[in-house]
């Protein structure tokens, strides 16, 4: 059987050489990521610039390039983009609304056993709070290609959140993702699941399937564009539901769950359950799949949390005790 799994960062990489060849105003700024080893940029080779392990300089240089008329694509790991180089992203790129594309690999827990120094569980919170920034999280390789293409003409900056190792494609049949619009993967009148990224979207789809066996009919939105958030779709698909559940590979604070909760808090009374990594550093050792499972980003865990939330009330305390990292209520 053919392995259809493909890494979003590889899908991105395979497409970006073509983008550079097609558009002479584009520049590839690399920070010694190794992502482009073996890539032949051909006649565009002079527009591939490896600045070395220097993320602040990469962001500032990209801002200068953009102010000088180019569209730079900057490449680094998600946590280095969002934390180490955050001030350059904020001041030099976002403040000036410059068309810099930040392609951030190794996002979420995808760095696996590299550990918390390399995990990025804060990047969506950082990036989505910056004015002018568009934040996109593809859920599979095909979605990466489609969304990359749609972001090429954006006048302002883009944060594109990518993974590391191969992940499975979304089930066939869904319409291709459209930038700025939630991708409806499943409809259901009881519960709404909102997810972004490969593991969370698959966990949401799997959970919806498990819940169906219990007679709980759940819809699933792939919220690949975290900013600007598709609030109309969120409102339409959450109306009348007993519960809205967000699933993401991010700390539970500030990411997709935060964005969804903020939007729904302003518009109507619906409970929101935010699933993701608890308020802890992911210090256990394991590969991406094992870490995602450990933190409850898998179909069985998500379904279990939803069943629990629907039957026993507010889940927050139980959830925080779950991993033994909280001994008392805040």
């Amino acid at each position: 059987m053919t392995d259809l799994r493909r890494a979003t960062r590889v899908a991105y990489r395979d497409r970006i050489a073509e983008v550079l060849a097609r558009d002479p105003r584009t520049v590839c700024v690399d920070t010694d990521t190794g992502l482009f080893q073996g890539v032949d940029f051909g006649a565009a080779a002079h527009r591939y610039v490896n600045v070395g392990i220097a993320e602040h300089n990469a962001m500032g240089l990209a801002a200068g390039l953009a102010a000088g008329g180019f569209t730079p694509f900057v490449h680094t790991f998600a946590t280095f983009a969002a934390m180490r180089a955050a001030e350059a992203v904020k001041i030099d790129i976002a403040y000036n609304a410059l068309p810099v594309r930040i392609a951030a690999t190794h996002s979420g827990l995808s760095a696996g056993h590299f550990g918390p120094t390399h995990h990025a569980l804060e990047d969506l919170a950082v990036m989505r709070c910056l004015p002018n920034m568009t934040v996109v999280v593809p859920a599979d390789a095909a979605g990466t290609e489609a969304l990359l293409e749609q972001t090429l003409g954006l006048p302002g900056p883009l944060y594109l959140r990518l993974g590391r190792k191969p992940t499975p494609p979304l089930p066939a049949g869904a319409a291709p993702p459209r930038l700025g619009f939630a991708q409806v993967l499943r409809t259901g009148p009881d519960v709404l699941l909102v997810a972004c990224g490969p593991h969370p979207v698959h966990a949401a789809l799997g959970a919806a399937e498990l819940l169906a066996a219990d007679g709980i009919r759940a819809g699933v939105l792939n919220m690949h564009t975290v900013k600007p958030l598709d609030v109309p779709a969120l409102l339409a698909h959450s109306a009348g539901r007993a519960l809205v559940v967000t699933v993401e590979e991010h700390w539970r604070a500030g990411g997709l769950g935060g964005a969804v909760a903020e939007a729904l808090a302003e518009s109507g009374p619906v409970r929101v359950l935010r699933l993701g990594v608890d308020d802890t550093f992911a210090s256990v050792v394991g590969d991406h799949d094992a870490l995602a499972r450990h933190y409850g980003i898998d179909p069985a865990s998500v379904a279990g949390r939803i069943r629990s939330a629907l039957s026993v009330g507010p889940p927050v305390i139980e959830e925080e005790l779950h991993h033994g990292h909280r001994l008392s209520r805040m």
Binding site: V27, H46, R47, V49, H56, N57, M59, G60, L61, A62, A63, G64, L65, A66, A67, G68, G69, F70, P72, E87, A88, I91, D92, Y95, N96
Partner: peptide, 25 residues
């Protein structure tokens, strides 16, 4: 004023970006 500044240690990277853009063009 080409780009805002104030937080120290930003200008040299920005200048390098402008210089690189000029050279590419």
């Amino acid at each position: 004023v080409e780009l805002p500044t104030g937080s120290l240690g930003h200008g040299l990277a920005l200048g390098a970006g402008f210089a690189l853009a000029a050279r590419l063009d």
